[in-house]
C-alpha cells in the first residue's frame, strides 16, 4: 500500500533566471536525488535560502523542475491530474495564512477536495471523516471554533487533521515545527513518527538537526544548491557536515534517554 516519491536529478531555476539578481542566473539547486519510502521520514536540513521550501514545492508538483524528474509511484508527477496526485500526497505549507474565519471543521473538510468533483460539496461521509480526523488529533472539541481564534499549536493539529482527512500516503511538510512552542514541537514530531510507522512516506524540512535525529529515517543537508550530506541521520549529520552547512561550530552528544542532540559550540566550559 505504500507509495514512493522520488527525485531524480531534480534541478530548479526561477523562470527567467539568468537575468534574476536573486539567483544570479544560477539554479536554486541542481541534480538532487532523493527517495521517500513508506514508513520512513526523510528530513531535509539546510541554511535559510538554501531552497528547502522550493524543493518541497517541486516534490509536491507546485513548481515544475527545470531538469530531472519527480516520480510518484514510479510515474512522472507531471502526468498526474492535480486531483489524482492530491489523493496520494498531502502538502502542508510553512505558514498557513487564514484570511477568513473558517471553522476548524470547514478547514478539515477542505482535505476532502481531491475526492470530490468540481461541482460537488462534501456530504455526510466526508463530514464523518473530518470529525474522525479531528478526533484523532484530539481537537474534535474545536470543530465549530473559528480557525483564526485557535492557538498556533491547535492550528497545527487542525492542519494535520486536514491532512488525515485527505487520506494520503505521502506527506510533504514544510517546517512543521517552526511556529510551535517546545512542547508542541515534540508532540508534532511524535505524531509524524507515528504516521510514518503507519506506513506513510514523509518528507519534511526542518531547522533543527535534533528533529532529524528524532525522526530517524533518512536525512540530507541542502546547501549551495546540492546535497552536501545524505543518508541515515546518524551517519550523514556529522559535526563537520552541520558546522559547514550552518557556519557555526556544533557538537553532537548522545544523552541517555533523549537520543542524539545538537548544540552550538560556545566555548565557555
Amino acid at each position: 500500500m505504500g507509495v514512493t516519491l522520488e527525485a531524480r536529478g531534480a534541478s530548479y531555476a526561477y523562470p527567467g533566471a539568468g537575468t534574476g539578481a536573486r539567483t544570479g542566473g544560477k539554479p536554486v539547486f541542481s541534480g538532487l536525488d532523493l527517495a521517500a519510502v513508506p514508513g520512513e521520514v526523510f528530513s531535509i536540513l539546510g541554511p535559510n535560502g538554501a531552497g528547502k521550501s522550493t524543493l518541497l514545492a517541486c516534490l509536491a508538483g507546485l513548481r515544475p523542475v527545470s531538469a530531472g524528474k519527480i516520480l510518484l509511484a514510479g510515474r512522472d508527477l507531471t502526468s498526474y491530474p492535480r486531483a489524482e496526485a492530491a489523493r496520494i500526497m498531502a502538502f502542508a505549507p510553512q505558514a498557513h495564512q487564514a484570511v477568513f474565519a473558517f471553522t476548524a471543521l470547514d478547514v478539515v473538510l477542505m482535505g476532502r477536495a481531491p475526492h470530490l468533483g468540481l461541482f460537488a460539496s462534501p456530504g455526510r461521509k466526508d463530514r464523518d471523516i473530518a470529525h474522525e480526523a479531528l478526533a484523532a488529533m484530539g481537537v474534535d472539541h474545536l470543530a465549530d471554533t473559528p480557525y483564526t481564534e485557535t492557538s498556533g499549536g491547535q492550528r497545527q493539529l487542525i492542519l494535520f487533521a486536514r491532512i488525515l482527512a485527505q487520506k494520503p500516503r505521502i506527506l510533504l511538510l514544510d517546517e512543521p515545527t517552526s511556529h510551535l512552542d517546545f512542547g508542541n514541537q515534540i508532540q508534532t514530531l511524535v505524531l509524524i513518527r507515528k504516521l510514518a510507522d503507519q506506513g506513510m512516506a514523509v518528507i519534511m524540512t526542518t531547522h533543527f538537526p535534533g528533529h532529524a535525529f528524532f525522526a530517524d529515517g533518512r536525512a540530507a543537508i541542502l546547501s549551495g544548491g546540492r546535497f552536501t550530506a545524505t543518508g541515515r541521520p546518524r551517519e550523514a549529520l556529522t559535526e563537520k557536515a552541520l558546522s559547514a552547512a550552518y557556519g557555526v561550530a556544533v557538537r553532537l552528544a548522545d544523552v541517555p534517554g533523549c537520543g542524539r542532540i545538537c548544540a552550538p559550540l560556545t566555548g565557555d566550559m
Partner: peptide, 23 residues
C-alpha cells in the same frame, strides 16, 4: 453556486488549493 464549496479552497492561496487537488 455550483462551484461554491471549491471556492473555499481558493481562499487558502494558490499553492495550498492546488495541493488539495483543485485546478
Amino acid at each position: 453556486l455550483s462551484v461554491r464549496w471549491r471556492m473555499n479552497a481558493l481562499s487558502l492561496g494558490d499553492d495550498e488549493a492546488r495541493s488539495l487537488g483543485v485546478d
